[in-house]
Design a binder for these strands. Structure first.
Lengths: 197, 197
DNA sequence: GCACTTTTCACCCCTTCGGGCGACCTCTTC
DNA sequence: GAAGAGGTCGCCCGAAGGGGTGAAAAGTGC
């Protein structure tokens, strides 16, 4: 990767060293290209010596917690979850598992740099409130229930998790099916996963 | 994007002009960086003047067929599906909808260039035939049933589609659940989609 | 005030699903 | 021939899911 000596910024600050862990060539190359536009503020280095580490724990054979623990073992930087998935549950798990920040792979370069610098300074970044519900014309509650359905929960489990009656859950499910145009749970799961729930 | 004049290769061939459609800055930057390593063979240009167009129809608000029709309207190049998803069904739909090739976003740069050149020359690239059943220790029939479950079919629908009794379908489902370690359909759908069924 | 949305809940009823048990057949391998 | 794998099927039964109807409370906008 980039092994050029660090430039000192006008304020006498060294660029933040950023590492990308376990990513495809497409993503690694993309991050390098994006951060190159801000080479005075950030520099891409090997993950082992990075101050901020970007990784995507979603969709791996290890579960989120185990993967992040593994990353922490291999690196020393502050961990930022850099993922496509906008699923609130996965993000929450990742942050609970020690990640200091979240940033979507869909953001432009300057937002990525902003998050990196913030995390490097010791701040934490929560995921922006997802707009899945608004995007799909579901209420917040409906989106929440759909997310749980996509994770394989039964109605009773969902009711327990949300502290409501199973009758309420059934009501939400009826509403969800009607809004997204499906007839049964398996269709709802397929639909929901396709759309990031 | 890259608007430098085309270089003529030693064989007198102009690089293939490649366009990226509707992608995030991360992917666009990544592709540019990857293809820059092969600048004598390919060049990234605006999609409207590209000879080969990379696009990802998966997970958009438009369905695969409608999205690809839209891309065809906006561009003139041969269409290559460039996606993370290895789902055989989605790929088949995309190819049926007119895409001339498929390539995973996970591949390295030289494979991407190879596919681009092949499609440019008039060839077509199918996704590699997955051996899902063998990979997951399912029988052929079990994998078939799981695939139908992941597409939201009810047991009765699956029975009709495979010309067997619903009792047979239930038997397969019992076996599938036991083998993949799930307790209910929604978990099986999530599991199956995650693994390309 | 009225209409609409969202959240919550009860209840009725029916369908679908899923665990279990048993059975039979074909093919392959030892 | 025996054992195992895979395919097929029936049946029992309870659990889970899903359509429908109705109700109430809170908040918002006209």
């Amino acid at each position: 990767m980039n092994s050029a000596p660090d430039k000192v910024t006008p304020q006498g600050r060294r660029p933040v060293r950023v590492g990308v862990v376990d990513e495809s060539e497409l993503v690694t190359t993309g991050v390098e290209g994006m951060l190159a536009q801000h080479s005075g503020r950030v520099a891409v280095v090997e993950p082992e010596v990075a101050e901020v580490v970007l990784c995507d724990p979603v969709g791996r054979s290890l579960d989120i917690e185990a993967y992040l623990a593994d990353v922490a073992r291999r690196t020393h930087g502050r961990v930022v979850v850099y993922t496509w998935r906008l699923d609130q549950g996965s993000v929450r798990r990742a942050v609970s598992a020690g990640a200091q920040g979240f940033v979507s792979k869909a953001v432009p370069a300057d937002e990525l740099v902003r998050v990196v610098e913030l995390v490097h300074r010791g701040g934490t970044v929560e995921a922006p409130a997802p707009t899945l519900a608004a995007r799909d014309s579901l209420s917040v509650r409906e989106a929440e229930v759909l997310s749980l359905i996509c994770r394989g929960r039964s109605n009773l489990e969902i009711a327990a998790e949300l502290y409501v009656s199973v009758n309420s859950v059934k009501t939400y499910i009826r509403q969800i099916y009607h809004k997204i145009g499906v007839a049964r749970r398996s269709q709802a799961v397929a639909w929901g996963i396709e759309r990031g729930y």
